[in-house]
Amino acid sequence: MKVYGITGWKNAGKTGLMERLVAEICGRGLTVSTVKHAHHDTDVDQPGRDSFRHRAAGAREVLLASPYRWALMHELRDAPEPALSDLLTRLSPVDLVLIEGYKREPHPKIEAFRAQNGKPPLADRNDTIRAVASDVPHPDLSLPCMDLDDTAAIADFILREVGL
């Protein structure tokens, strides 16, 4: 599986870009999965649901299945967060895995950048960033800079980078 990331500061447009890229690349006939890293406590389950009650009772893993989807929830129970490389082995094979977040991991990335954040580009100090998708030009950067809203051009860049 090919792996490519989208990174950037909070509120830089990462999730919107990911959403558009998934639609664009799937629309080209390729299969895509995503990994989203959250720095905060997050839960896909809801209090009171049977699966939530199973986890609350102490289950290490709960697999929830329906005719439409299935989800496996794994409680770390004070174990360390797994490495991205370990998590990727749990995914079914696809053409491309897009990763949101994981700034410090070694996979190649595009930085989503919005000037309104008032923060400097991460690309200045992160050599895994191969290009910047921005709402303003960056003539001082030596990397390719694309319009944050030009999803097709960003998808073209990623697919060329990974050889798809």
Rank of each mutant, 00 (worst) to 15 (best):
H40V: 11
V62F: 04
A57I: 14
V32K: 14
T31L: 10
R49Q: 13
L76G: 12
G16I: 07
T34S: 04
G29K: 00
R49D: 14
R60L: 05
L64M: 11
A12T: 07
M18T: 12
D43I: 00
H39S: 10
N11M: 01
L30A: 07
R53Y: 13
L64E: 08
I25Q: 00
D78K: 06
H40W: 13
A23R: 15
T31S: 15
R53L: 10
G8C: 09
V35E: 10
V44A: 13
A65I: 03
T34E: 05
A23E: 09
A71L: 05
D41E: 14
R53P: 10
S51E: 08
G16K: 08
E61N: 11
A56M: 11
W70K: 06
K36T: 01
D45T: 06
H54R: 14
M18R: 04
G27C: 05
W9G: 05
F52G: 10
K10Y: 12
H54W: 04
P47V: 06
D78A: 08
K36C: 01
A12F: 04
C26M: 02
C26I: 07
E19T: 10
G5M: 01
L30H: 03
I6R: 03
R28M: 06
R69T: 09
E24C: 02
T42I: 13
L64S: 05
R60G: 05
G48Q: 14
T15V: 12
A65T: 11
D41P: 14
T7E: 11
I25A: 09
R28G: 12
